[in-house]
């Protein structure tokens, strides 16, 4: 859980900084598309990157809604269980 949380936050920060913009503080309640300077392609990049790093794909069986960092961590935690 802790590793997944760190991994998701670290990769999110990397994607934002690679765009050349300042990364705000990322909290568990941060909404990817509202509170962070990310668009839908950045979010897709994050998901692909997480799949490469973890081998996990929580979306294999269909769409699952998430908005916040915490909700995404939960999806990966479930996929890992």
């Amino acid at each position: 859980m802790k590793n997944l949380k760190n991994l998701i936050i670290e990769k999110t920060r990397k994607i934002i900084t690679e765009k050349g913009v300042d990364c705000p503080t990322i909290t568990l309640n941060s909404e990817f598309l509202n509170d962070l300077p990310m668009d839908s392609l950045d979010l897709a990049t994050l998901i692909v990157s997480l799949e490469i790093s973890t081998g996990l794909d929580p979306f294999r069986d269909g769409f699952k809604t998430f908005h916040t960092v915490d909700e995404l961590i939960n999806l990966y935690t479930e996929a890992n269980s």
């Binding site: 690679e18 392609l41 897709a44 990049t45 692909v48 990157s49 490469i52």
Partner: peptide, 9 residues
């Protein structure tokens, strides 16, 4: 292909 382009940035 898009997954690779995105991950390669």
């Amino acid at each position: 292909a898009l997954r690779i382009f995105l991950s390669q940035n």
